[in-house]
Design a protein around this nucleic acid. Structure first.
Lengths: 175, 175
DNA sequence: GTTCCTGCAAAACCTTTGCACCACG
DNA sequence: CGTGGTGCAAAGGTTTTGCAGGAAC
């Protein structure tokens, strides 16, 4: 039971089939082949909006009727990273291990994350002034900057409200 | 064969036994106990200058004559994270998994990293202007900032030199 | 004395590898 | 057709868990 292969039109990239191009380029340059599994991978990866994990990706593939093995997912994930299509961003929640996490490398706009240390909520943001300063720092050390990962960890508005409420209550009884 | 327990005087923290205090506070607040294993852990962790991994830490403990099991290391590492004494910074090299990595949360000066994507060299830096802007971003989203992780990935001076040399050579022959 | 902690061994995971078969180019 | 890719199963690592004995408070 097979399914026709969709052309990967990546919303994240500048909608021009950039991801496909990147992938083809990498494959060509290394003598790789464009198998149907790789087409599926690329299609799904390009459809994903946010972060994803290998298992996660496998599930989506299966759900969409692409029968791909986890091994292949792993093998091609590193390929996609090397092609510059996705990026690894190992992130842990609450101190325990979660495993690899991937996300699109956006065509133009880069985004960073605000993470709530209480509820784990993740908010994306981008702030060009910070990006600019990063270039400055890199230059100071003689580095040419390729990319960066910035994660701000703090307490989100909701959890702050909840905590100040609790603190007030505790103060009333215990103090 | 036992060894006397050193008082943990943490060079990273403001040398005032801050780590000890943080740890005791956490233990007290959760009904935890100050076992000799935990004292050892704290001592060694406070002596470590840079990054370390669980296995790594275990080796150091053994080398110093503290007989602690790997299980205990793992269990207490997350405790130390919760106490705000160390921080997890999962970092992968070259796209493949390396495992958890920890480092001190410095008393005052926070530092970030510049990483070379070619040779893996890591350079620490701190830049207050960036820190300040991060506060701004957090505030804009209603977050109160606790900490952050910033990693700048690029090419270090040495590798840049090496690459431009190679590029020049290639240009001479191939073009 | 209670609890909580430790160490051991085993389980649970995630990721990589070896190998036979298959398919892209 | 030849080489590289896939799937499966098994290996390799790291991290977590169950349990009995021991230690802190």
């Amino acid at each position: 039971m097979q399914q026709e292969f969709l052309k990967a039109s990546c919303a994240a990239c500048s909608s021009e089939g950039l991801c496909e191009k990147k992938f083809h380029d990498l494959l060509r340059s290394s003598g790789g082949r464009l198998t149907k599994e790789r087409k599926s991978l690329l299609t799904i990866v390009c459809d994903i909006k946010g972060h994803f994990q290998p298992q996660n990706l496998l599930a989506m593939l299966r759900r969409r009727g692409y029968p791909v093995s986890l091994t292949t997912v792993y093998r091609n994930l590193s390929l996609l990273v090397r092609a510059g299509i996705i990026r690894r961003t190992d992130v842990q929640e609450g101190g325990s291990h979660v495993g690899a996490r991937y996300e699109h490398v956006w065509g133009r706009a880069h985004h960073d994350h605000l993470v709530c240390s209480r509820c784990g909520r993740r908010v994306e943001f981008s702030y060009s002034a910070i990006d600019a300063l990063q270039e400055v720092v890199a230059a100071q050390h003689g580095f040419s900057l390729e990319r960066h990962t910035l994660e701000l960890v703090g307490v989100c508005p909701d959890c702050r409200t909840a905590e100040s409420g609790r603190r007030a209550a505790a103060g009333r009884t215990a103090r």
